[in-house]
Amino acid sequence: MTTSEPLRPDLARELITLAERSAARRAQRLRNQLDAIQLGQGRHADHASAKVLRRILADHDCWPGHRLVGPEAARAAWSIALHSNDEPDFQRAAAVLLRRSVQAGDAPVRHWAHLHDRALINNGHDQEFGTQFLLGAKGIELCPVREPTTLDQRRASVGLPPAAVALEKVRHRLASMRGDGDSPTVLLAGAA
């Protein structure tokens, strides 16, 4: 992966801005700080962000990786795709392009693992790498995983820590974001 100036700094700025706004809304949602109208506006904004990313993918016929937009914006693109939960077909297509970018050495494999898992979950399948968690009334739990006995080996193959370590990180991150109070069921990704 490269650390030189990205080819498209304009796209980098756009992606980073969209992802930062989305992250701020998600943090407010986890703290139960949004009313129904604001929740709807957030979903609309996430859809609009996915539309921007879809346009970038179509215009460049590739994932906006480190060479095109730089590492920070590539992470922003990943976050936008990851949180496009209402568009599972888009997530699946984005995961295919992200995998190609990983194979070309232009994006981190752990980003692909998270997006691949999210696309599987949102398309009704068990996840492969154990990166997706649910926050429900009973706390945080791992979404269903295919072949759980070999999960940690698959996680290691993409540079992820054991599932138990990831679960503890997610619990710690959520505790620092939420404080006390009930939260609706929310799909969460482990730390990347």
Rank of each mutant, 00 (worst) to 15 (best):
A163I: 05
P88A: 02
L97Y: 03
G159T: 05
L53R: 02
D117S: 04
R178Q: 11
V186R: 09
D106R: 09
A77H: 05
L68W: 07
Q41I: 08
R13P: 01
R173Q: 08
D35C: 05
L82D: 13
L188N: 00
D182G: 02
E87D: 13
A113L: 06
K169A: 06
D86I: 11
I121D: 06
C62Q: 11
L188H: 00
W78T: 05
I16K: 01
I121V: 15
E141R: 14
L57Q: 10
E5R: 10
E128P: 00
G136H: 01
V96N: 06
A113E: 11
L174I: 11
E147T: 15
I80T: 04
S157Y: 01
Q132N: 07
A45F: 10
Q153E: 13
L34P: 03
G190D: 05
I140F: 00
S79I: 14
L57E: 08
R31Q: 15
L115N: 10
V145A: 11
L120W: 01
E147N: 15
G130D: 08
R173M: 03
E72K: 13
M1N: 12
P148V: 12
E5W: 05
L135N: 05
S79E: 10
Q127P: 01
A45Q: 15
R13L: 09
A58Y: 11
E87I: 03
K169H: 11
V102E: 00
A94G: 10
S79L: 15
P148M: 10
P71Y: 03
A166H: 04
A192D: 15
L151W: 01
L167G: 00
Q91H: 02
D182E: 14
V186A: 11
E14K: 04
Q127Y: 04
A137Y: 14
Q33L: 12
G65M: 02
D106E: 12
F129Y: 14
G42H: 09
D180Y: 01
Q103D: 15
G190L: 08
D10P: 07
I140G: 03
S49T: 07
F129I: 05
A45T: 03
H83T: 07
L15N: 00
A191Y: 01
G190F: 04
P108I: 02
D106W: 08
G65I: 08
A192Q: 10
A36V: 09
A12D: 08
A104E: 08
H60R: 05
A73W: 02
G159V: 06
V96S: 11
D89F: 06
P108Y: 01
Q132E: 13
H60L: 13
P88G: 06
